[in-house]
Amino acid sequence: MIIKEIVDIVKADVLTNYNDGNTELKYGFASDLMSDVLAYARSDSLLITGLNNPQVIRTVEMLDINAVLFVRGKVPCSEVIELAKENCITILATEYTMFKTCGLLVMNGMKGLEIDD
């Protein structure tokens, strides 16, 4: 799924955008626990989270993930935005809850990761 589709589906605000319009994010991974993200997420994933601190960006930086979607109306703090800009990471934000966000993305074709992937 490309960023533009994700933005349309969850009515997201685009806070930073470094993705080529055609770059596909094959999987979604939703978590507020960054160690779980480090254990299971892949670089071709969109991270969906309600956690709002710089460690979210540090975590995706280590994994080479280049897009994060903040849920539950969280407005990423300035440290998050600055760190995302330094690392060319796309930041989206939606008012929807994590459950509704994931449901909409899955209904529209985004895949979830298996633990053993």
């Binding site: 507020d32 626990l33 960054m34 160690s35 779980d36 480090l38 254990a39 956690l51 601190n53 460690q55």
Partner: peptide, 15 residues
Amino acid sequence: ELGFGAGMGLPNIKK
């Protein structure tokens, strides 16, 4: 609350 302490640190390092 900061997103850590999930008990995956050392297992991840080993993995």
